[in-house]
Design a protein around this nucleic acid. Structure first.
Lengths: 218, 218
DNA sequence: TTATTATTTTTGGCTTACCAAAAAATTATT
DNA sequence: AATAATTTTTTGGTAAGCCAAAAATAATAA
């Protein structure tokens, strides 16, 4: 099995199981990887033989400890590159994901080490997602989803969980950039949409969007 | 045909024909690409159909204008990355080639543009090789091979044509680093080896090594 | 020029990563 | 529980990129 194929499967399993080694099913994987379920069946069988996942027929797949470590390594490379592209090369946070999808497959420990060093060993990428350290440890954060925010409280925008270009552009339009301070003004009773104050302006956020925005309690 | 495979063939044809669209043969290609000649035959046929090379049976292969442009693009990416790794990330010039072999395949015009910009649009990489510009134009240089150097003259070490780690380490040991000023002291009659002065020390260079060292006339 | 050597091409085969369609198993719905 | 819908697996097939061995061609030396 090709290293890049393996990495894409492991990474996807990791994301779908939200880092918990929970079980993921073939359909989900097929959708994310843009292949048909039959292809996934084949692949997870091979990954099982490589002891990177535990695959149980007609049930599902989860990462082994080894697989999880590898996945964490890929996630680390991806997020280090995203941070580097944004902070050092001046890319917008809506552009970095796509490029990092390619860069993440370059496995050269020294390269990632140098990049991390130059960035001052960051713990979070420009989307606010945590960057696993060399050992795969992920820094816990006091981040919550904007949808869980409480009225009158102050928060700082830290990231997003949806990386689609459409969504990122939407945020930019509302000045909801990383680091922006916000205050919850109202939460509409009838549809749960949130009115918040950002840059002294009122901004209305739909519940769906609020689910995808990560904020830090201040 | 996979983009990375195409790129590796084009790049190799480019290097073997010394940028002149001269004819290269299957054996040479097979050796460089670490495949058997039969594989090359298959590949060049396909590249011919893609109009990237002109392949004549039992004769040889050369780049078309399109193929040449593509090759120049790959060479540009490779050398920009090498320069970036050395100048911005502090890698040694003996380390950058290997990493750039992978990075060169990431095709994102904006990325290369940003890297080049950050470097101040360099025309030469850390090995002294010219970096083609966005249009594929290569800056001419007054560089010569050390083997062509004349007695008593002064030169500056600008690069190498052999990127093997062994060779680069050999140079480093003799303090023959990029930018080093040298003076030709003697050229031995019987074996053409060169005695030069570098850092106030006498250094003897074999004719074979002298073939691989690029110097600039001062 | 013939013999020898080197290179190139052909042929048949392999693995990886995919797909399509059909069959089997699981899960959900009535 | 029976039926319908979904998911999973099996089966057969494809293209890319490789190899090994044999046949054909070209280049070199005797």
């Amino acid at each position: 099995m090709q290293s890049e194929t393996i990495e894409n499967y492991l990474k996807t399993i990791y994301h779908l199981s939200s880092g918990n080694s929970a079980i993921v099913n073939n359909k989900q994987l097929a959708d994310k990887l843009k292949v048909i379920p039959a292809t996934v069946t084949e692949a997870v069988k091979k990954l099982h033989e490589l002891k990177l996942v535990v695959y149980e027929k007609s049930y599902g797949t989860r990462l082994t400890t080894t697989g999880s470590k590898m996945a964490l390594g890929i996630v680390r490379r991806h997020r280090i590159w995203e941070t580097y592209l944004a902070n050092e090369l001046g890319f917008g946070w809506d552009e970095v994901h796509e490029i990092a999808e390619e860069l993440e497959h370059i496995k050269n420990d020294k390269l990632i080490k140098k990049l991390s060093e130059k960035l001052g060993h960051p713990n979070f990428d420009p989307h606010g997602d945590p960057i696993p350290d060399e050992k795969g440890k992920i820094q816990k954060s006091n981040f919550i989803k904007l949808s869980e925010a409480k009225i009158k409280n102050n928060y700082k925008v830290m990231g997003v969980t949806d990386h689609s270009t459409a969504f990122l552009k939407y945020l930019e339009k509302h000045q909801l950039i990383i680091g922006a301070g916000i205050t919850i003004k109202t939460i509409e009773e009838f549809d749960n949409s949130i009115i918040l104050i950002c840059q002294k302006k009122d901004v209305s956020i739909s519940p769906k969007a609020a689910e995808c925005i990560i904020v830090q309690t201040l």
